[in-house]
Computed example of a mutant assay.
Amino acid sequence: MRLFGTVAGLYDSARPGYPAWIGESIVSFHGRAPSSVVEIGAGTGKGTAVLAGLGAPLTCIEPDPRMAAVLAGRFPAAVVHATTFEDWTPPDGGADVLACAMAWHWLDPATRNRLAFDALAPGGTLAIFGHRYGYADPDQGEAVRATLSRLNRTGSDRPLDWFHQDVLDHGCFTGVRKEVRRTPLPLDRTGYLNLMATFGPGLKQSPERQRQVQEALGRLVDDFGGNVVLDLRTTLVLGSR
């Protein structure tokens, strides 16, 4: 997960946040205002903004110190632990709500559900949410995929809403449900290129290849008329201990 610390500032400015319905759905599912909230893999706080709105004491776990520094600056009222979820010690009695935004895949598949279950108070709520980025114009999407493939950059091969099935398959949480909403995300050339520069597959490439990808995508956006409209698919998965 420390991969993103190299672009912590850009990540914070370029990645979209989360809509208010995420927090509203968490409270509705939980059945009351939570008494405490813990966030796993909080990054620079894209999901934290929604969770802070729940009004409960907030603890954030973020292993990359560069991301954690941005996070602490944005949310001074939150308690930030620069460590991994696996090394973090839950509070006595557990957390009322345990949340994770776009970081569930960084946790060990063999232990993440059990550790999350054990970190929750009885009757507590697990909330996992994230975005999947598509394209409003299928032709634009295909052109981007072809360009990235040519430059040996591939995206995630995880199935759509895979973390919903992951929680269901583990079987320790009850009442598991999924909510999905889609939102158009218009971006100009700079906004789109900045967003694309924050994704893991690209960050794993050499600086020279990253430059080549940015130049190729820039030419594509120019061909598109200078703008791209993404199809932002936001999924929330909820379950109870």
Results as ranks from 00 to 15, higher is better:
Leu126Ile: 15
Asp161Gln: 14
Pro65Gln: 12
Arg241Val: 15
Asn113Thr: 09
Gly155His: 13
Tyr11Lys: 07
Arg158Ile: 13
Arg15Tyr: 13
Lys46Gly: 01
Arg181His: 15
Gln214Phe: 09
Pro122Gly: 03
Gly202Leu: 13
Asp108Trp: 00
Val79Lys: 11
Pro16Met: 11
Thr48Ser: 15
Thr59Val: 09
Pro16Leu: 09
Gly171Trp: 13
Gly93Phe: 09
Ala69Val: 04
Gly226Phe: 07
Cys100Gln: 07
Ala82Asn: 06
Arg181Leu: 06
Phe29Thr: 12
Met67Gln: 07
Lys204His: 13
Thr6Ser: 14
Leu98Gly: 07
Glu86Phe: 03
Gly5Thr: 04
Ala14Thr: 04
Leu193Tyr: 02
Asp157Gly: 12
Arg32Leu: 14
Gln140Ala: 04
Gly134His: 08
Pro63Glu: 07
Ala56Cys: 11
Thr183Asn: 11
Pro63Gly: 10
Asp87Gly: 14
Leu160Trp: 10
Val180Cys: 07
Leu98His: 01
Thr174Cys: 13
Gly175Tyr: 10
Arg219Pro: 00
Gly5His: 02
Asp157His: 10
Met1Pro: 13
Leu193Met: 08
Gly31Asp: 14
Ala103Phe: 12
Phe75Ala: 01
Gly141Trp: 07
Glu215Ala: 15
His30Phe: 15
Arg2Asn: 15
Arg150Gln: 15
Leu54Ile: 11
Asn194His: 12
Glu215Leu: 10
Pro159Ser: 05
Gly202Met: 11
Gln210Ile: 05
Asn194Gln: 13
Asp137Thr: 12
Leu236His: 06
Trp21Met: 09
Ala121Asn: 05
Pro122Trp: 01
Met67Lys: 00
Leu195His: 05
His164Cys: 08
Val167Asn: 03
Tyr18Val: 10
Ala127Tyr: 06
Leu151Pro: 07
Gly17Ser: 06
Phe117Leu: 14
Ala197Gly: 11
Gly218Lys: 11
Gly43His: 01
Tyr18Trp: 10
Met67Ala: 03
Ile22Asp: 05
